[in-house]
Each structure stands twice: as C-alpha cells, then as structure tokens.
C-alpha cells in the first residue's frame, strides 16, 4: 500500500458527501434499475471522463480493496491509467490489471470477458442514465413513464428499426429490463455484453456524474434485453478470430494498421487477451 497524498481525505471526497452517496447507493440496490438523483460533486477531471463512476468508487472503496479500471476493455488507456493513479494517490489502494485479482472494477463501456465473482463490484461510468432520453427529453415526463412502467415508446423505437432495416440497429447502449420492472440503460457497453449482466454474481453499480444519477443491479437479478418474439435479441460480434490470442468468443476491436486498407481484429479486453497469449506461450515452451 502506497502512502496517500497528504491534505486529502481518504478517497478524495469528504465524509458528508460519502454518506450521501452511500445512502443513494443502498436505495439503488433496494430498487434495482431505478435511477436515483444525487448531489454529484465537481471532481478533478472533466465530465465525460468518468466523474460518476469515480464518485461511486470513492464511496465504496476501502483500504483492503484492489482496484482495476478499464476503458473500452483496456487497462492501458489514458482514462483508465488516470483514474487508477488518482485512487492510488488519494486512497493508497492496491491496483491491478488482472480481472480475477480485483475487488472493485471501474469500467467505461465494457464488461470483462472473465465471469465476475461474488466478492467483486463492477462500477460503470454512465454518460446518459435515462434510456428514454432520445425519445422523451422532458425529465418530468420520463420520471412519470418509469413510475407507470410505460415503456411503449422504446418498443416502438425498436419496432421502427425492424420495419425500416429488418433488424434492431442498436449495437451499444441496448436497453434492458431489470427485475421485470425498470427499463434501464446499461451504459454504452456493446450489446454483446448485455447477456453478462443477467444474473451476474457480482454487484453492479452505475454512476452518472453530469446527469447526477446513480442506479444499481443487485447480484443474481434478471436483466433482459428488450426484444420481440419474432425478432429475439442477438448479441453482435465481429465474425473474426482475435489476431493476437485467437479467441472466437471475446468482443473484438477493429484496428486500422496502415493507410492501404490493412486492419486486424483484437480482443477489446486486454487482460483476457494477454492471459491467453501468456498461457499459449507457456504451453509452447
């Protein structure tokens, strides 16, 4: 454990703010999928860089935790490194890039490939918590629609895709029903990741800093992607093998390699890919 930065409270936030966040998180867990407003604080990084996720992480984090931060599945991107370094400095917690070793995983737009366990918490960074926002801009109205569980708008939106394009053309931020009651935005994770949310063993917490909303999915809770009987939900994945580890199951990123049309597909989850490559290397020795 590193010595935390002097002059800051443990995990940066003051205790009154943490209590407010903690009360909000507990109510969010008690009402799965329901967005709860909270007094989001200004954080030392801009909106859109994970201020909501950071505040949730700061509220739950303790000295015994091991933190992993991923951005689109990668541990080594600017956003992930900055947030990991932030918590190393203000909380002195241990960090890791290994999914299996982490107790708290803060994520931007991916769920790790390895199944999560009961002693882990997944914290999502959420840009827009309201799944109906593009269909009904008035907050007062969407609150009422959630109270009435009136989600016809979203079904019509998905139906229009089928009528016009023959399939539901939503590759990310694909809306889900949580516990059969609340329509919820899974944050902009690929639709490929949606099935992993269903009855996940780990607790899932969602923080939206600019929009000032927190919501949660308790462990082993039903999470269903919206679909129709004759157009069932299908997670989409590029029909390639990973160029590095050869995986046929993982979610792939397309990487442009030159200016002559060269490209390759690699796992978006860098830890998953790295471990597979290392295992293959060990087997070859």
């Amino acid at each position: 454990m590193n010595a935390p930065l002097e002059g800051y409270n443990f995990a940066y936030l003051d205790e009154a703010t943490k209590r407010m966040l903690r009360r909000t998180i507990l109510k969010a867990v008690a009402i799965p999928g329901h967005q709860i407003p909270f007094g989001a604080r200004e954080m030392p990084l801009p909106y859109g860089w994970g201020t909501g996720g950071i505040q949730v992480t700061a509220a739950i984090l303790g000295p015994a935790d091991t933190l992993k931060v991923i951005d689109q599945g990668a541990d080594d991107t600017t956003n992930a490194i900055s947030i990991r370094r932030f918590f190393t400095r203000v909380a002195g917690v241990a960090t890791t890039e290994r999914t299996a070793e982490a107790t708290i995983i803060q994520t931007r737009h991916r769920i790790p490939e390895a199944p999560l366990r009961e002693n882990q918490v997944l914290v999502y960074q959420v840009p827009q918590p309201e799944p109906l926002s593009k269909l009904e801009p008035r907050r007062a109205e969407t609150k009422r629609l959630h109270a009435l569980a009136d989600y016809g708008l979203m079904h019509v939106r998905l139906y229009e895709d089928i009528a016009r394009l023959g399939h539901i053309a939503k590759a990310y931020d694909y809306p889900v029903m949580v516990g059969g009651r609340y329509l919820m935005s899974p944050s902009p994770i690929p639709a490929f990741d949606n099935p992993k949310m269903h009855r996940m063993a780990a607790l899932q917490l969602f923080g939206a800093g600019r929009e000032k909303r927190i919501y949660a999915i308790p462990p082993y809770t039903d999470v269903r992607s919206l679909d129709f009987e004759d157009h069932p939900f299908r997670p989409i994945r590029a029909p390639q093998d990973c160029a590095l580890c050869g995986s046929r199951e993982s979610y792939l990123d397309e990487v442009i390699t030159d200016d002559r049309g060269g490209r390759l597909f690699v796992c978006s989850d860098t830890d998953y890919c790295g471990e597979r490559v290392a295992a293959r290397g060990a087997a070859a020795c």
């Binding site: 205790e15 943490k18 903690r22 739950i60 000295p63 009961e118 607790l203």
Partner: peptide
Amino acid sequence: DPVLDAQAAFRAVLEAMSR
C-alpha cells in the same frame, strides 16, 4: 477511525442489502 470505520460499516450494509 471515523473515515475507515464508517467505510467498513457501510460495506457491511451494502453487502447485506446486495445479498
């Protein structure tokens, strides 16, 4: 320890509410 003891108590409640 008002900071770390509060965090530990909260995590116990969070774990209890989650499971």
